[in-house]
Simulated scan of single mutants.
Amino acid sequence: MIPPPQLPHVQRELIARATAAGPRWQSLARMQLSEQEIGMGRHTDHANARVLRRIIGEYGWPGVPLVGQDGATAAWQIALHADTDTFMQRAAARAMHAATQRGTASIRQWAHLHDRCLLNADLPQHFGTQYLRGADGLELEPVHDPDTLDTRRAEVGLPPALDALHDLRLRLAATPRTSDQKNDGTSTTSPTESA
């Protein structure tokens, strides 16, 4: 039997924030939002990032023992979408990485967040999880040492890059997932997609 989360009130807050933002994140990934909606969403993402910053400051990374699997995934999603606060996003990635070392956070999810932080610092990504919508569809954002990409992906439990791109294209073409469907540990974001 899985023990209940140690911080159920934090779990509820994280899940509520990620659930409220989820439909907008999905619409953003499908480029279905106006500029006004994108701007309003940035304010929400910034507010969510402030809350996550406070939580990390008080408790460390909200990993599975603290907030359950759904709460930990919600925290990761909030961090991944914190592009308006890259300082907090990098701090979240560091805290999450430490939690992966303790076995309380997903290394696969951390790889997505790590890549996002690298791109936001104008550096090439390491695990090839981030894509940009280009003229010919999804294009892989710059990657450090592309010849060994699939080896690095395998080290953190990610599928080969071509398989991930195929799956991402299918997800973006499908009907958006509702908030009650199971999260598969991946995310889509725009202008950069994640696979």
Rank of each mutant, 00 (worst) to 15 (best):
G68H: 05
R30P: 11
L52F: 03
W61N: 02
P23G: 07
Q32E: 15
G71R: 02
A95C: 08
L7E: 10
Q89I: 00
P65Y: 03
W25K: 01
A18S: 14
T73N: 10
I38S: 11
T44L: 12
T44N: 08
Q32N: 14
L7F: 06
I15R: 07
W76Y: 14
L28T: 08
M96N: 02
W25E: 06
R90Q: 12
Q11T: 10
R90D: 08
Q32K: 12
A93Q: 02
H97L: 11
I55P: 00
A16G: 10
I15L: 08
P62R: 09
M40N: 15
G39P: 10
A79H: 03
A20Y: 09
A20S: 13
A16Q: 13
R24E: 09
E37D: 14
Q32A: 15
D45M: 08
T73W: 06
A72D: 05
G60F: 05
Q77I: 03
P62Q: 09
G57L: 03
P8Y: 09
S34E: 13
A29R: 04
A79P: 07
R53C: 07
A92W: 01
A49H: 04
S27C: 13
M88H: 13
A74M: 02
T86Q: 04
D45N: 13
D45G: 05
G41D: 12
E13F: 00
L33R: 13
A47T: 12
T19R: 15
S34M: 10
L14R: 01
V10K: 01
A16E: 15
R54C: 00
V51G: 00
A29G: 15
W25L: 06
I56Y: 02
V10P: 00
A74F: 02
M88T: 14
Q36M: 15
E35Q: 15
A20Q: 14
G41S: 14
R24W: 13
G68V: 04
R12G: 03
G68T: 07
L7N: 05
I15W: 03
A47G: 07
G60C: 11
P62V: 09
T19M: 10
A79K: 02
H81M: 13
D45V: 07
G60I: 07
H46V: 10
A21F: 07
N48Y: 04
P65C: 05
L33D: 06
M40Y: 13
R12E: 14
P23Y: 04
R24K: 08
E37F: 05
I56S: 02
A47R: 12
D70L: 09
A20K: 14
M96E: 04
A72Y: 00
V64H: 01
R94N: 09
G41R: 10
F87Y: 07
R53W: 04
H46C: 06
V51N: 03
T73F: 07
I55W: 00
H43L: 15
Q77M: 11
H46P: 00
H81R: 05
W25D: 04
E13N: 08
W25Y: 13
G39Q: 13
T86R: 06
A72Q: 06
I55K: 00
A47C: 09
S34C: 12
T86M: 06
H97Y: 08
L14C: 08
R24F: 09
H43T: 15
R30T: 13
I56K: 04
R24H: 11
T44A: 12
H81E: 11
R50K: 08
P8D: 10
